[in-house]
Amino acid sequence: MTSLPGGSDKGGSAAEPQSLVCARCGTPAEGPPPTWTCSVENGSRQYFCDRCSRENLRAIEGRLDSAWW
């Protein structure tokens, strides 16, 4: 199970849910984004919308950082 940064699994109190924005195109998430892709790059989480994820699927599967796509 994965939680968002600031969640209760880090020892802190439950914070307000963060609104997610696609790290590539800037599209805001409307509610929980169950079909978005999460990537950890240089120690930080980045989220990508459905469209950006589909357009860059081969690079994601090849584990290339988003700077390469």
Results as ranks from 00 to 15, higher is better:
G62T: 08
A59C: 09
D65S: 10
M1C: 08
P17L: 07
S19W: 01
G6W: 01
V21R: 05
D9G: 06
G31K: 12
S3Q: 15
E41M: 08
S44V: 15
G26I: 07
M1H: 07
G43P: 00
C52I: 02
G43F: 01
A59K: 12
L4E: 13
W69P: 01
G62K: 13
G11N: 02
R51H: 11
N56F: 00
A29I: 06
G26W: 01
V21N: 07
R63C: 07
A29Y: 09
A23Y: 10
T2Q: 07
C38H: 11
P17S: 09
A67I: 14
K10M: 11
P5S: 13
G7S: 15
V21K: 15
P5R: 05
R58Y: 06
Q46D: 03
S66K: 06
P17N: 04
G7E: 05
S8E: 05
N56Q: 02
A23I: 02
V21G: 04
T27V: 10
N56R: 07
G12L: 05
E41T: 13
E41P: 02
S13E: 09
C49W: 03
C49L: 09
S66A: 10
T37A: 12
P17R: 06
G11A: 04
G62N: 10
N56T: 11
L4A: 12
D65K: 12
Q46S: 11
G62E: 14
I60C: 04
V40Y: 01
S8Q: 10
E61N: 11
E41C: 04
S19F: 06
E61F: 09
C49E: 05
G11E: 02
V40K: 07
L64K: 15
R24N: 13
N42V: 00
P34N: 08
T35A: 15
L57E: 14
S3M: 11
G43A: 00
L64Q: 14
C22D: 07
L4Y: 15
L4F: 10
D65P: 13
V21I: 06
E61D: 09
K10P: 00
T35K: 12
Y47P: 00
C52N: 07
G26D: 04
D9L: 10
T37R: 13
N42P: 00
G62H: 09
A14G: 09
C25G: 12
Q18G: 10
V21S: 03
S39Y: 05
R45H: 05
P34Q: 02
G6I: 01
W68N: 04
R58K: 10
L4M: 14
P32S: 10
S13N: 11
L57K: 15
C38D: 04
P17H: 03
R45K: 09
W36K: 09
V40Q: 07
Q18P: 12
P17I: 09
P32K: 13
A59G: 15
G43M: 02
W68E: 14
F48R: 08
G43Q: 03
G12Y: 06
G62L: 14
W69T: 02
I60M: 11
R24C: 06
S53K: 15
C52D: 11
D50E: 10
S8C: 04
R54P: 03
R58I: 06
S53N: 12
T35Y: 13
S8M: 03
